[in-house]
């Protein structure tokens, strides 16, 4: 498996650390309530198909990426910096 890091280019997956669903980007307000925090921390979909998840280019530039990929076909549509997404 190969992921194209926006900083470093296309690299083998061994350079990356896998974290989990990109939902972790949307941290609730401290006052958002138990349900929001429970969902944020614990509730995850298990999609057969397109998904977005977080990878850390640990053996590379140290950037966190959102990788857009398909769990069925293993196709990778692209990767973006989490920092850049936040700016949007």
């Amino acid at each position: 498996m190969r992921i194209t890091c926006p900083i470093c280019g296309t690299r083998d997956r061994r350079e990356f650390y896998y974290q989990g669903a990109a939902e972790a980007l949307h941290r609730p307000d401290p006052e958002a309530g138990e349900d929001a925090w429970d969902a944020y921390l614990h509730l995850r979909d298990n999609p057969a198909g397109r998904t977005q998840d977080l990878w850390y280019h640990e053996a590379g530039c140290g950037c966190w990426l959102v990788v857009d990929r398909d769990t069925v076909t293993h196709e990778i549509y692209g990767a973006t910096l989490v920092e850049a997404r936040h700016a949007d």
């Binding site: 974290q19 140290g62 966190w64 989490v82 700016a87």
Partner: peptide, 13 residues
């Protein structure tokens, strides 16, 4: 280190 990168890039860029 991974955690600090996460917090900075994802939560407090």
């Amino acid at each position: 280190m991974r955690h600090l990168d996460w917090v900075h890039q994802a939560l407090m860029p």
